[in-house]
Design a protein around this nucleic acid. Structure first.
Length: 207
DNA sequence: GCATCGATGGTG
DNA sequence: ACCATCGATGCA
């Protein structure tokens, strides 16, 4: 079996059909790539919303100057130190929530930011929303700090494995981290090649 | 198509 | 003061 396949979402679901703890307890880069093409499922006030993830970013630990943990362990970043498969949701610019998936083992503050997705189901009675950006995605899926720290294998918010042919993925620098010195150049943003649902930021990158 | 700017509030 | 954003505005 090829490494590309081992690193993908395929074959990693448990009996529940959801991505399980072992999927998330890997390094942030592996999880960031593997999440492309998976389905994010959000249950909120009796409606199940589904979206197919097309863009992620990896924040690889306290040594990564773009990672919130680089500034130390604080009240805000405490959930980054949970084990892989928990949500790290924070509030920024006075208006937006950002959804991250904590990865790796407990006490190692790595995470994957979910940046963009394609609406799949749940918005009946209206046009499908634009999920092409981390703030827009959280707004449409009703994700706020109330979900900070929740277990991403539970009903409220979880992931289903990718289906169909494996997505072609390219890597670019991360968005909005110009302050992060040499880390701003690292190719830690991952997008599905050709997707029209990725965020407005640059769509070119290396394979 | 692009660059620039303001909203808005938690955080350390 | 800063910020892992977004939508509006101006101009081409």
């Amino acid at each position: 079996m090829q490494k590309e396949t081992e690193n993908s979402a395929y074959g990693t679901a448990g009996a529940s059909g959801r991505l399980g703890r072992e999927f998330f307890e890997r390094d942030a880069v592996t999880v960031a790539r593997a999440l492309i093409g998976t389905t994010l499922v959000r249950q909120f006030r009796g409606t199940e919303y589904r979206a197919r993830i097309v863009e992620t970013e990896a924040y690889v630990g306290a040594h990564d100057l773009a990672c919130h943990a680089a500034k130390g362990r604080t009240a805000r970043t405490e959930t980054l130190y949970l084990s892989g498969g928990h949500a790290y949701v924070y509030f920024i610019y006075g208006m937006y929530s950002m959804l991250n998936v904590v990865t790796g083992v407990a006490e190692d503050p790595q995470a994957v930011l979910i940046r963009a997705a394609e609406p799949v189901a749940g918005w009946n009675g209206g046009p499908p929303p634009d999920l092409s950006g981390p703030g827009k995605l959280c707004r449409a899926l009703h994700i706020t700090r109330a979900q900070n720290g929740i277990d991403l294998t539970d009903d409220a918010l979880h992931f289903l494995p990718a289906t169909g042919p494996p997505p072609r993925i390219i890597a670019t620098p991360r968005i909005g981290v110009d302050y992060a010195k040499e880390w701003k150049h690292e190719l830690l943003r991952f997008l599905e090649l050709g997707s029209s649902a990725v965020s407005k930021a640059p769509r070119k990158g290396s394979a």
